[in-house]
């Protein structure tokens, strides 16, 4: 009798297929500038997705998520040998693992903390990471590290794609984005993911129902950190250098703004938010040097008039709902 959800699902599936097709064909449109720009956006989309695990699905508003992005990026910068290319298949897992470890370490302290204090301690830890890379020999200071070679994707003697080629990088990042999206979709429907959403909704009751909330939050923080590390690694791979700005609080703030733009607690929203953020940034910076003012203003208006973010435009007002409602 009620066809609305079905029709909505169909429409969603069509929109998704169209978006995937568009992204898959995009490099054929030719312009190298835009291919690289969209590569960058897709990396930011992975970053935003990773933060959404915390903010949108666990209820942990981290203001220091760039730390793990930076750790992933620096892992490549530090591991890349000066006179030859690093191997993708070795450095990528190390980068993701290093970011996961960093998040596990920080998470062990911060996930006990609640609300506004959580925001502050995540920021404080991120600042510590920033100074480690900015002010120590280990991090090579404020200039960061330039890599002389792009990593190679060689497996034995076989090299499936060439990471010095921007189009290949585009497709590699595209594949990573799709994988991360699908992984999170599956994870969030698993018992673990449902429990995270329960914690976001009512942590007290979750504890009362027998969930060891601390461990769930810590696992969430670690997964989010690992995925942020993946995004950071891809960014270092694309641009061939890393510097401490990758870990700065601006970066943590920007990714939060992407989520707010797109809609917290929606995977589509996180991706849409990354695209919208960069599009607005490009648009406004082409108009004026005071583009940050315009961007800020736009985001304020959006928060006031569209509190659910872009994801809510499609009438998806049920996005935080868990379970399948009978009607309405």
């Amino acid at each position: 009798m009620i066809h609305a959800p079905e029709r909505q699902d169909r429409r969603k599936a069509i929109a998704l297929a169209a978006a995937l097709l568009l992204l898959a064909l995009f490099p054929f449109a030719g312009a190298a500038f835009y291919t690289e720009l969209v590569t960058k956006v897709m990396i930011l989309a992975i970053f935003a997705l990773s933060l959404d695990v915390l903010v949108g699905y666990t209820g942990l508003v981290s203001f220091g998520h760039a730390a793990y992005y930076g750790v992933g990026a620096y892992a490549l910068g530090l591991l890349a040998p000066p006179y030859e290319a690093a191997n993708l298949w070795l450095t990528l897992p190390v980068a993701v693992g290093a970011a996961a470890l960093a998040a596990l370490f920080v998470g062990a302290f911060v996930v006990r903390v609640k609300g506004i204090y959580f925001i502050m301690v995540t920021l404080a830890f991120a600042q510590m990471f920033y100074f480690v890379f900015h002010d120590t020999r280990f991090g090579r200071g404020s200039d960061g590290i330039s890599m002389n070679f792009k990593p190679v994707a060689a497996i034995g003697g076989f090299t499936p794609f060439d990471l010095a080629n921007a189009v290949h990088v585009y497709y590699f990042v595209f594949a990573a984005l799709v994988l991360v999206f699908v992984f999170l979709r599956v994870l969030l429907r698993s018992p673990f993911g449902r429990a995270l959403q329960g914690i976001r909704s009512n942590e007290h009751r979750m504890r009362s129902l027998g969930y060891p909330v601390y461990w769930y939050k810590l696992a969430s923080f670690t997964v989010a950190g690992a995925l942020a590390g993946l995004a950071g690694y891809l960014s270092a791979l694309q641009f061939g250098f890393v510097n401490p700005e990758l870990l700065s609080w601006h970066q943590s703030g920007n990714v939060l703004l992407m989520l707010i733009l797109g809609g917290v607690g929606s995977l589509y929203g996180a991706v849409a938010g990354a695209f919208a953020f960069v599009a607005l940034q490009e648009l406004f910076s082409s108009l004026t040097t005071h583009w940050q003012l315009l961007l800020g203003g736009t985001i304020i208006l959006l928060v006031i008039f569209l509190p659910g973010g872009l994801a809510s435009i499609a009438g998806r007002f049920k996005r935080t709902l868990v379970g399948e409602p009978d009607d309405e």
Partner: peptide, 19 residues
């Protein structure tokens, strides 16, 4: 369901649909 899941939490069954 979430209440009942607490008796069989299976947090590592990340590739299964809880529902």
């Amino acid at each position: 369901r979430l209440a009942a899941q607490s008796r069989a939490p299976r947090p590592f069954a990340v590739f299964t649909d809880a529902a």
